[in-house]
Amino acid sequence: MRLLFLFSLTYLVTEEDLISAEAGMPQLDPTYWASQGFWLILIFSILYLVISKFFIPRIKNNLEVRENKIKNDLDEAKNLKELAEKKEAEYMKLISEAKKEVTKNFIDTKKKLINDLNFKKESIEKEINKELEKTQKDINELKKDSINSINIIAEGIASKIIHDISGDKLNESSIKAVVSDTSKRKIGEYL
């Protein structure tokens, strides 16, 4: 950089034309200083006013709008995430509760069914027993009845046979005694 500058300075000095009055620095010629100052102040003031009153609020406003939008979006996303998490937790709770309930229901139902079954079994058994007893009783009574009726029939037949064979009429009570005796002895073989 310095070398280049020295180079150009040497060029400036060695070129004869440039040493003339015109080759001085126009910057140091005060002819248009006032004009430059006046126009600089005028143009820069207007530029400053336009920028500060018009452009900067617009850029600032737009940047703020964007920042707010981003912030709002982020907030909303956060809220939604929280909501989703909450809902998920609720859902999980619901599911676990449902599972618990199902298990409970299952166990309850099972218990109830077993109880029911046992109860029914018992009552049926009871009924069966009752029926059995009743039937047993009926049979016993029937047996008794049948023995009596057999005895009566046997007495009738015996007296008839005796009457037919011998023509005698035997004492009823003796026949009865013989029949009951025989039936007592032999009835067990048939009943």
């Binding site: 248009y32 006032a34 004009s35 006046f38 126009w39 600089l40 143009i43 820069f44 530029l47």
Partner: peptide
């Protein structure tokens, strides 16, 4: 005082206008 419009003023104006157009 000479306050004539010069080439310097012209280029100041061009710069300022360029800024304004760009920002607009």
């Amino acid at each position: 005082v000479d306050l004539s419009f010069t080439n310097s003023s012209l280029f100041m104006l061009i710069s300022a206008l360029t800024i304004c157009i760009f920002l607009f």
